[in-house]
Design a binder for these strands. Structure first.
Lengths: 207, 207
DNA sequence: ATTTTATTTAATAGAGTTATTAAATTGACT
DNA sequence: AGTCAATTTAATAACTCTATTAAATAAAAT
């Protein structure tokens, strides 16, 4: 469509939209070609297989999903403030990429090979950042600023509460006829509530 | 297989297992027939269409998923005790039906018609129980026993934290080689942590 | 201007899908 | 044994899907 965008890019972009919306198996290369405005064979000419095309897109999305999650800024603000920001940043990323949770859950459950590939790709890469976060958290717990909780449980809690509203959006849109503005408002509220819930859940008990 | 189990039941049961494992579109009526040990046409003889067969199974699973969630016992135990039990009961249900979260998220996102059918079916049916829970919760908040939170947010928090581990199970099993015992242990720990997190997050702030 | 290379399309092989139809098999009842 | 209905199967129509191939068109290079 754009002058500098060649058809290869066009296909990639259309494939991305379709895969995000329906997942791997419900999108055909014919669908992609139709949306991109080219012949179906061209999709295979550029990407050879549908799996190839999907991999590129999925890898990118998954990395994005984890990236923000595996960074932790080094500013001298207190731990809880930085944690709060981290949760919000992750939620904001999802607002911009609402179908990511569906794609990840769907394809990671369904496809064993995809799982292996991803785990290999990610595990070591982010171990360092995880360890640093772990260290900081457990230190705060030692100081008595935070109730005891395993680092993994905390991370899982955050992710789960962050993603669930995006599973519910189709329901709210199509069944309860929320419009874009209402959805945007709802998401902001939900983000606030997640932060609130996590922060409250971390308050030490004895206090 | 059993004497009293006729082939119709056999097909239904095999279909259930396959649909739970792979979702609607990745299971063919041929797959079902093969697993049930009959001719593919027989699947259509009993259920006419694949959609029909799926609907029966999906409806049942979804009702199950919501049933325990829309009951609230009337014993004279304190609210928080009953809430704790409710969370555990929901989690226990998921332990027995591990693929339910995947099936629901997957098919509810992908199929608009299925959404409509379900919402109609469920909305009014469970409104009464929801209202009662809502009333009790807000009363506790008024009394200052619980920090202010919307009923819906609380329910969403519980569901999200309860289901997420079941999205992660395939990863733990196939990539980190957890055996059944380890998984069982992990699930118990996770259940405990969810209850803990929710309960901690509900403590009033001023106290 | 013509050869070479890159892009794009039409056509199609080959496999798999749902659903239907007619025929075969089984079992019950008279 | 013979009739009737229920169950099961083989065969197949009418798709759709991925991927490949050969041919056509466009762009670049000599």
């Amino acid at each position: 469509m754009n002058k500098d965008n060649n058809m290869e890019q066009q296909i990639l972009q259309c494939a991305e939209e379709l895969f995000l919306e329906k997942g791997f198996s419900l999108v055909s290369t014919t669908d992609i070609a139709k949306k991109a405005g080219c012949n179906q064979a061209l999709v295979h000419y550029y990407f050879r297989t549908k799996e190839n095309l999907f991999q590129q897109i999925f890898q990118a999305k998954f990395t994005k999903f984890l990236y923000i999650f595996t960074t932790f800024d080094d500013s001298d603000e207190p731990f809880t403030t930085r944690l709060r920001k981290k949760i919000e940043a992750h939620f904001n990323l999802l607002i911009e990429n609402r179908q990511i949770p569906f794609l990840i859950v769907n394809e990671l459950i369904l496809n064993e090979e995809r799982r292996s590939a991803l785990v290999k790709n990610i595990y070591n890469k982010n171990l360092e950042i995880y360890r640093r976060f772990d260290h900081e958290l457990q230190e705060e717990i030692q100081k008595g600023n935070i109730r005891p909780i395993s680092t993994l449980d905390l991370l899982i809690n955050i992710v789960s509460m962050n993603i669930i509203i995006f599973f519910m959006l189709p329901l709210l849109e199509s069944q309860f006829n929320f419009d874009d503005e209402e959805i945007a408002e709802l998401l902001q509220q939900r983000k606030h509530e997640v932060v609130e819930t996590i922060m409250c859940s971390l308050r030490p008990k004895n206090k």
